[in-house]
Design a protein around this nucleic acid. Sequence first.
DNA 1: GACCTGACGCCCC
DNA 2: AGGGGCGCCAGGT
Length: 109
Amino acid sequence: MKKTHYFEDVYEVVRSIPKGRVSTYGAIADFLSLGSARMVGWALKQSGIMDGPIPAHRVVNREGYLSGRLGFPDPGYMQRALEREGVEVRKDRVVDFKTLFWHPAENIL
DNA sequence: GACCTGACGCCCC
DNA sequence: AGGGGCGCCAGGT
């Protein structure tokens, strides 16, 4: 695939999501001024999780739902990865998502 | 090269 | 509060 600076940016932001916190496709797209949240999901999907250094499981949709869970090795993989970090998940949704939500801009503080 | 699709999200009814 | 429509932009067919 064509090497894009874009992929690098997405990966870096995702990597900077603190353990135990979650972010969204929209927040990342907004932070990178990409204009399209779909592209963030698309980039992660194409990445194939890149061996693991990229905590893609910390990225959920704007309602806290694990919309990308089917892109992992198995349907429960994403949830388990989150629970392993202390993030509670129920019905494919992050419990108390509003509190755990992390915006990329927060990283600069 | 046109058309469809997607790990999304906002606006309008 | 819930549902539908449309913009988004890169890839695949």
